[in-house]
């Protein structure tokens, strides 16, 4: 059973994660669609800067890789209650078809197994264009540390503008 407290904490972590984002994550303009201990779903609006062609119709695969990596991060944060730090150990991405659409990109990622030191993630990416064909799948492992003084506490202290 997921308690109301857990739901509220998940929502708060997801909001902080977006509001305190810097660099690439803020460039991506992510919108949270779902964020709880079972998984995270985010929406990324089309951005011509992420395209591989001059006509700006096809996204570069690398941005999908980056999107998956980011989403794994948030999924770990929500799934591992006392997570202090995490570092991506490895990341694998399969590009299933060309990313040729100007529709929003949607990503779902979950932490499907967590141990004392390692978190395992799996995710997929599709376009919100009606048929929702998958464009990429990814999996990753993370080295994590757990204990008192969690990342949640650190981010809470840092505040929304940090």
């Amino acid at each position: 059973m997921t308690s109301t407290k857990d739901v509220e904490k998940s929502a708060m972590i997801a909001r902080m994660w977006v509001s305190q984002a810097k660099g690439l994550i803020s460039e991506m303009g992510l919108v949270i669609e779902r964020a709880d201990q079972k998984g995270v779903q985010l929406r990324m609006p089309f951005n011509p800067d992420f395209c591989v062609d001059e006509a700006k119709t096809i996204l570069h695969g690398g941005i999908l890789t980056a999107l998956l990596d980011s989403t794994f991060g948030l999924a770990n944060f929500l799934a591992v209650d006392d997570i202090q730090t995490m570092a991506t150990l490895d990341l694998r991405v399969d590009y299933l078809r060309p990313a040729s659409s100007r529709a929003d990109v949607v990503v779902f990622a979950e932490c499907y197994r967590k141990t004392r030191h390692i978190a395992f993630g799996s995710g997929k990416v599709w376009f919100d264009n009606g048929d929702c064909e998958e464009v990429a799948r990814g999996s990753a492992t993370f080295a994590i540390t757990r204990g008192k003084g969690s990342l949640f506490d650190t981010m809470k202290k840092a505040g929304p503008s940090a």
Binding site: L24, H60, I63, A66, L67, D69
Partner: peptide, 10 residues
């Protein structure tokens, strides 16, 4: 960002 490093290498 790990994705930026991966994108640069790709």
């Amino acid at each position: 960002h790990g994705g930026i490093i991966a994108s640069f290498m790709e």
